[in-house]
Design a protein around this nucleic acid. Structure first.
Lengths: 195, 195, 195, 195
DNA sequence: CATGAATGAGCTTTCATTCAT
DNA sequence: CATGAATGAAAGCTCATTCAT
């Protein structure tokens, strides 16, 4: 008698999420079909629905996974020797290609129409702003940045800069990888600079 | 037999574009159907296809029109008494609701999948950056802003901030209308400030 | 400029309803697919949905058409020289094959699960009972049947007999066409007989 | 290695049939899925298919069982002190809710499409009519009912009344539990009454 | 110039059934 | 005996697009 193997199950779910990620990256949330994802994940539609109850559920899981990744990322940044410097480096560095940035923008767009995604995004945004605000408070305590800046709106503005960089990567990928990077670093430094 | 009337023809195209704009604003490029647009434009699908050869063509034309409008907007800003101040005011002021901001983000996303839209976007991004760079150069000549900033990358960064504000309007509409606005103004002023 | 032709539209709807009737008769409401109906009606699915917004809507329309037909039928019965005799003849006479009787039974079954069909059936049943009760009252006034019978429950019972005859046609088609018929006539006559 | 245990096997089959009965009662033969039945029977699909080779086989077995139960029921009625009175009481009394009546009607409907079920139904209809005819003959011998009635067609008609009562329970549950009952008793009494 | 009919591929999802363990 | 993974062929429905008038 074979019992359900939760490890294997989790692997399958990951397999689907990765396949979905590739498809969504290529064609967007709306543009990629379940059939595409099945093909990419080498899995029949019936089986895919064994693991996710709907396409929206896949998008939701993927979004949440993205949030978790971002959070982990931030954790590393904040635990590095110079969190602020690391953060600035991170934002400007458009390491991920336009496709990946596009996915986040698509999520923003989708959240404007699909309530379930809107809920996840709201949560996501709140969490990110929270982490950024914490980073800012620490830097203020250390006197690294302007202590008169209000952490919360400032964090929101930094998030806007991050999203803006995504847009830059789409509008002009070349620039985003060269002079744009330096300019963004300057932008953030001047914005936050202790005085 | 009546001959084609180019003026009437152009009016019809505008009518369709306006209807499409409302539909796309409401439901997104993918979410709005040709049927929706026909209904909104009080026009049959057969007739609509007389003016636009495909849905993508409508999106392209709308993108074109939207960007042209933005360019005209900038022109006005630059010809105002205090172009720089007007610009800053303009960016931070999230006058248009999230729906309208969403549409621009949707255009960015769509440009990532549809080459013809990518071409239009690229062209217009270049034009916008050009105008911004010109604005920056003027301000530098007048000594209003830091003269060591390189106009082109700085213009790209300002454009990123504009797009970032759109994202902010989607992520947290309330904040974007209040504290976020002030923070963004501060961001731009500090970035450009003459020293 | 061609205008919508309501006559042609109505013909199309009829064409679909007839095709659906044949399919439902053959395979039942659940068993017959939209695709089957499209094939039978020589029409693409897209077009079919131009005329009916869902499969349930087709079933509903068909049910209502059936009611109208039954009502017309009753009208004729009641306006004949000997309404009561005509009615008895009518009930026993299993003119329509088992397939057609099956369809009504299927409707009963379906109404137990699909609220929209339940609503139509309820309406249908009420109308039929009303007509039967009227017939009974007339016959009582003429002294043709037992005047002590309460029209409403008696009408319900006659309707049960009609449905029972449908079941008989399914259980044993041959008998239903021969000795069963005579027995049912006797049943009704004895039930209603003036005393 | 363990040998097959026929008793345990039979228990399992019963377990499945009971679960299926509940599901079918709730959602109909077509509406209930194998997955539903598995869930209700706390059994995996693979295992279920070990006991029944298809969904139709389950329906067939259930039909068989249901009809066998009805036959047993009749046996009891016929061995009671006053078989005829007991029978009349039985028919009119809509003890089982509409769901249960629905299931029998669904069987009739299904028999119209699935030959294997049609065969079972035919067989059982014959058996039921046989029992009813026997009941009638006994009553005739005792002078309790009209001796001129032909037992076979009369039995078929009584069966039709039984099915008709099921339909009544679906068409108007309230009536079927009140005035309808009395009317049906009257119907049968007048039909059979000795003269 | 304009209509609405008509198409057909494709969408998400379900489900009876089989397979590997 | 028993599990749950896995399949794949539908299902109902939508929609960009073309056609006939």
């Amino acid at each position: 008698m074979r019992r359900a193997d939760p490890i294997r199950q989790e692997q399958r779910r990951q397999q689907i999420l990765e396949a979905a990620g590739r498809c969504f990256m290529r064609d967007g949330f709306r543009g990629a079909s379940i059939s595409d994802i099945c093909h990419e994940a080498k899995m029949s539609p019936g089986h895919l629905y064994h693991y996710f109850e709907s396409k929206d559920a896949i998008i939701a899981a993927l979004t949440q996974a993205g949030l978790a990744q971002a959070a982990a990322h931030f954790d590393r940044v904040m635990n590095s020797a110079h969190p602020l410097a690391a953060f600035i480096e991170e934002v400007a560095n458009a390491r991920y290609g336009p496709a990946s940035q596009l996915l986040v923008l698509d999520m923003l767009v989708e959240s404007g129409r699909v309530p379930s995604i809107a809920a996840i995004l709201r949560e996501h945004s709140r969490a990110l702003r929270g982490m950024l605000a914490k980073l800012l408070r620490q830097a203020q305590e250390r006197g690294e940045i302007d202590s008169s800046l209000e952490p919360d709106p400032t964090a929101a503005t930094l998030l806007a800069i991050i999203d803006g960089c995504r847009a830059m990567a789409v509008r002009d990928p070349k620039l985003a990888r060269t002079a744009g990077q330096e300019s963004v670093k300057l932008l953030i430094r001047r914005f936050l600079k202790a005085r």
